[in-house]
């Protein structure tokens, strides 16, 4: 099964459309994450796919079938809501039975399937609890089990971890990843948290101002993004505008570097790829601030006309005012546009 969103545009009636020509395609068993800050249009897109909104233009296709105008309950799109939207007047079991009752399954079949799903997400012992008696993590599992009980052809998750506290979020992230990859349906996952996106997804699309400006695997987006905005969102602390110099090199604020191929408008490198030390040559700078972060030391170093951010071994112990020499490995410098 594949989910395809084809050039979807949508506006709430204001002058600025929320989504402009968004296209994505999620394959069988693939976890695709829409990454974007709040207001980027993620939730709107999810609502269009689920059928709560109708796009102004474009189509939503499931397995080649156009479902843009099909009613939400006939789409077979399972959704896990941000605050889970568990029915407060039904216990866990009845929440999970809800979609099966809506399809008029046989009683025995329903019960069996419900037990199976409880087992799958690990809430068998909570079956008789009311939603108000569940913890955040338990609610989340229930919501997932309920969405799966509808036998969805595609699964949508709207920031399912955002209502949980930080420690639990990291713990459940891994669990969710293995659960999602065991499913054989396309999964569309929404988050504003880049680490969560990295941990969960097969592929990530970065949504900015209603457009997917870049997509790729977590590794690609993490190490070799192509767009300035993506790089900046994904923690490239150092992004500099560059100029072509002719004769196969470019001018950067830190000095010229040789360059083959297309001329980028910017270059960037991650703070953790900076090498610090005295081993010959390299750049010199003065530490403006240093921030200890346990496993690493964050330095802001003034060098030539710019500030370079670096994440280095804490044992270096550089403090404010110190002179440091450092170098940037050539292969960690990424061209951006």
């Amino acid at each position: 099964m594949t989910l395809e969103v084809v050039s979807v545009g949508f506006g709430y009636g204001g002058s600025v459309p929320v989504l402009k020509d968004v296209s994505i395609s999620v394959g069988d068993g693939e976890v695709y994450t829409l990454l974007g800050s709040s207001g980027s249009g993620k939730t709107t897109l999810l609502n269009i796919i689920a059928g709560f909104l109708r796009p102004d233009s474009g189509r939503v296709m499931l397995d080649g079938e156009d479902i843009t105008h099909i009613r939400p309950e006939r789409r077979g799109v399972g959704m896990v809501f941000q605050d889970y939207a568990l029915f407060p007047h039904m216990n866990v079991r009845n929440n999970i039975l809800f979609p099966m009752k809506a399809r008029n399954l046989a009683r025995a079949e329903m019960d069996g399937r419900a037990d199976e799903l409880c087992e799958l997400v690990g809430i068998s012992h909570l079956r008789d609890r009311m939603p108000s008696e569940l913890s955040g993590g338990e609610k989340q599992r229930t919501a997932i089990a309920r969405a799966l009980a509808a036998d969805p052809r595609v699964l949508l998750l709207d920031e399912p971890l955002s209502a949980l506290d930080a420690a639990l979020r990291i713990e459940l992230r891994g669990e969710l990843r293995s659960l999602l990859s065991s499913l054989e349906v396309p999964t569309l996952y929404i988050t504003h948290d880049q680490r969560e996106a990295m941990a969960i997804s097969d592929r990530i699309g970065y949504l900015l101002d209603g457009r997917i400006i870049e997509e790729g695997t977590p590794e690609k987006l993490y190490w070799r993004p192509e767009r300035v905005q993506t790089a900046s969102f994904l923690g490239f602390g150092n992004i500099f505008r560059v100029k072509a110099r002719g004769n196969g090199s470019i001018a950067t604020p830190l000095g010229p570097i040789p360059w083959n191929g297309d001329m980028p408008s910017h270059i960037g490198f991650r703070p953790d790829s900076v090498r610090i030390g005295t081993d010959g040559g390299g750049l010199k700078g003065k530490v403006i601030s240093s921030e200890y972060r346990g496993s690493s030391l964050f330095l802001r170093v003034s060098c030539r006309s710019v500030v370079v951010i670096m994440e280095v071994d804490p044992h270096i112990g550089a403090g404010k005012g110190d002179e440091v020499t450092f170098s940037i490995p050539r292969d960690s410098i990424v061209p951006l546009r």
Partner: peptide, 11 residues
């Protein structure tokens, strides 16, 4: 969103 949840679950 409870009504939307119900709809997405096939009701």
């Amino acid at each position: 969103q409870l009504e939307r949840a119900a709809r997405s679950l096939g009701a």
